[in-house]
């Protein structure tokens, strides 16, 4: 190593940086991920400022009732629906619902899944076998089918839907965290921590889980996209929120599915909104995966 190289190495050692900072640097240099962030920002801004951005109330009748409603352009940016409501306003308020169901259902799935995964991975033995077989069972049922079943069982409504979709994501998180923990459980630093008397609980929560959580964070982003689609799908199938006035994107599509020829914008625009938001989340998830992949760590 030359003197210059040695100094460079020394400098890079001195630079204040952590694992997360390094990951952030890699993420920032990934153009696809940045596009994803942009799309997600659009969704978040729409959701948060729906009331300010929307020209009208989502359920306010601002035009004539019509079987052949006005398309985009004209007086209303994105046109009207058959009940004379402003489509742009409904889409903006719909962003609230989609973001909410994405976050809440993933939060439900994540918290249940993490507990199961941590217990299975750390305790092992028959506890592990029992938990993981149940998870396999859940995974073997198509998630949409299971969500349909749960909604039928629990009744219609936003809360029930979010719960149903959340439950279908439990096995994904449980399996992922368990596998990750198994990889870390026998790591040298865990042995070293045990050698200085760190107790089991602290070992799991303070040492093993922080080292196992990265792939779970990635998966959570990707699953949020799936959750948004699934909720839209449930609505489309008529199992959506009971309140017919809620501007849920999937329901907006379902309500107008038979007007695809006469008023295509009523079906295409909500579909487009779904695509934008899920694509944003997927791009972010992939970017995160590349940024914090343990194989890239040094």
């Amino acid at each position: 190593m030359s003197v210059a190289e040695a100094q460079a190495a020394e400098l890079s050692l001195e630079r204040p940086s952590g694992l997360w900072r390094d990951a952030f640097d890699r993420f920032r240099r990934n153009p696809a991920a940045l596009v994803g962030v942009g799309l997600l920002l659009v969704l978040i801004i729409a959701a948060v400022f729906a009331a300010q951005l929307a020209p009208h109330e989502p359920n306010q009748q601002v035009g004539p009732l019509s079987t052949n409603p006005a398309g985009p352009g004209g007086g209303f940016t994105l046109g009207l629906d058959e009940q004379g409501r402003d489509v742009l306003s409904r889409l903006l308020f719909g962003a609230r619902l989609s973001l909410l169901v994405g976050v809440v259902s993933v939060a439900i799935g994540l918290s249940i899944g993490l507990v199961f995964g941590a217990v299975a991975g750390y305790i092992g033995g028959w506890v592990d076998t029992a938990i993981m077989r149940v998870m396999d069972l859940l995974l073997s049922v198509p998630s949409l089918l299971m969500a349909i079943g749960l909604v039928t069982l629990l009744g219609r409504g936003m809360v029930q839907i979010m719960f149903a979709v959340g439950v279908t994501t439990v096995p994904i998180f449980a399996r992922l965290l368990r596998g990750s923990i198994l990889g870390q459980r026998e790591a040298d630093y865990v042995l070293a921590a045990r050698s200085v008397g760190v107790p089991g609980r602290r070992l799991l929560l303070g040492h093993i889980i922080p080292n196992s959580i990265a792939p779970v964070i990635v998966q959570a982003t990707l699953t949020m996209a799936t959750a948004i689609i699934e909720v839209a799908a449930l609505s489309f199938l008529g199992l959506g929120p009971g309140d017919p006035s809620l501007p849920e994107w999937g329901k907006m599509m379902a309500d107008n599915a038979n007007r695809l020829e006469s008023a295509a914008h009523l079906v295409l625009l909500p579909g487009f909104a779904i695509v934008i938001s899920t694509m944003g989340l997927n791009l972010i998830g992939d970017g995160l995966r590349e940024a914090i992949d343990p194989k890239l760590r040094s």
Binding site: Y189, A192, S195, G197, H207, P210
Partner: peptide
């Protein structure tokens, strides 16, 4: 556990993997 670390300490072979990377 009380004795480990307080009365008896241990140093391991590979310093590259024996420290927790996220702490």
């Amino acid at each position: 556990r009380e004795i480990r670390g307080r009365d008896i300490g241990m140093v391991f072979q590979d310093p590259m993997t024996s420290l927790n990377p996220v702490l």
